[in-house]
Amino acid sequence: MDKLYYRLRIYRSVVGINIKEVLAYNFWFWSQIGAHVLLTIAYISFWKALYSERDTIAGLNMQQTLTYIILARIVMPLVQWGYTQEFGYWIREGTISSELLRPVDFQERIYIGHLTRTFISLAQQLIVVGSLALFVFKISLPTDPLVWLSFLISLLLGCSILFCFDWIFGCIAFYSTEVWGLQVVRGSVLLLFSGVLLPLTMLPTELQTIAKWLPFAQSVSVPVSILSGMTPLSELDSIWLQQLVWLGVMFMLSRLMFNFSVRKITVQGG
């Protein structure tokens, strides 16, 4: 019991530090939001132009697609980056050695920080992009609290799956010591196969199959489809089950991969 209390106390400060870190870079934050909003306007206009001459594309009508797109834009900043850069930094600067010496589990601590950032970012995006959707584009967001709750659970699972994947992916940096290239590959694959650019059902079937076997869709397409009403709530059981299986596998692999590859580290000058 005491031990649990001790851990909770540590995590409370991890959460606090992450909140402070996010809020410290105010100017940069607004700039990012500004650029994101501009791009969102461009996207929405593109899709509106696309629908101006027809009622459905790939079986989706304009309202469905626009709702999906705007919600995907809200989720996108949450999943964009991953942890390759951090892994590179920890190794290059050698801070990994002191990180590993701390009395709490390394991955767990980073994960708590990651979730804090994710949900702050979600709140910010909901406020900014959400009001853009409501007031400028007149796109109605769902009002049923049950749908929102299901979305949040699915998003939490999806972001955890992606986190474990990024952990595995980041471990490659132990071998390659090259992170920019890894980042680029991850970013491009995510762009196409996560569903941030378009509803995945619009992709050709072969690409849809690939998307299904990659973890990226779990964090964007799956939760956003629930929230935009494309996935009926009756399918939730099987979706959550799938996500839990994904999470279980990814988590095990991430532990194995990290414990295995951490032995490879050479800290320069350490």
């Binding site: 762009l191 196409l192 650019l197």
Partner: peptide
């Protein structure tokens, strides 16, 4: 790579 991904998405639509 980045632009390739966006272009494939554009083509898919």
């Amino acid at each position: 790579l980045f632009q390739g991904a966006s272009l494939v998405a554009l083509w898919a639509v």
